[in-house]
Amino acid sequence: MLSWSTATTGGEVDLAAVAAGEGDTRLERGDELLRFATACATADDDELARARAALADVSDEAFMVDAAAVAANFEMMTRLADSTGARLPADRLERSAQAIGVMGADEFVSKR
């Protein structure tokens, strides 16, 4: 889902920071969102608890729950895409080429 998602950001997000998991994303609450998203997709429950609290502290709990839901949605969509062999059309791939490079997606085993 990386290519699809990054094509919709309109350049508002610093993808290099997203790819690194740290740095200035150029978004309000970007640091906390990036930390939370990283924790959602990794296995450290203690870090997830800290990241969840940190995000709620700079926003509110409804905002945190909505971010949790977005992360969950992409747990769903990544499995949908990879199990059914979803591919992007060539023109969409071309438009996403820079983002794909920044995010290191060319190296993904799921590239097809």
Partner: peptide, 24 residues
């Protein structure tokens, strides 16, 4: 109002997709 913006949503989406190594 005050909820996640599109860019904030895509930040979360992109990071999860990257860590799941989903190229699509």
């Amino acid at each position: 109002e005050g909820g996640l913006s599109r860019a904030q949503m895509e930040l979360v989406a992109a990071r999860v997709a990257q860590l799941r190594e989903c190229f699509f």
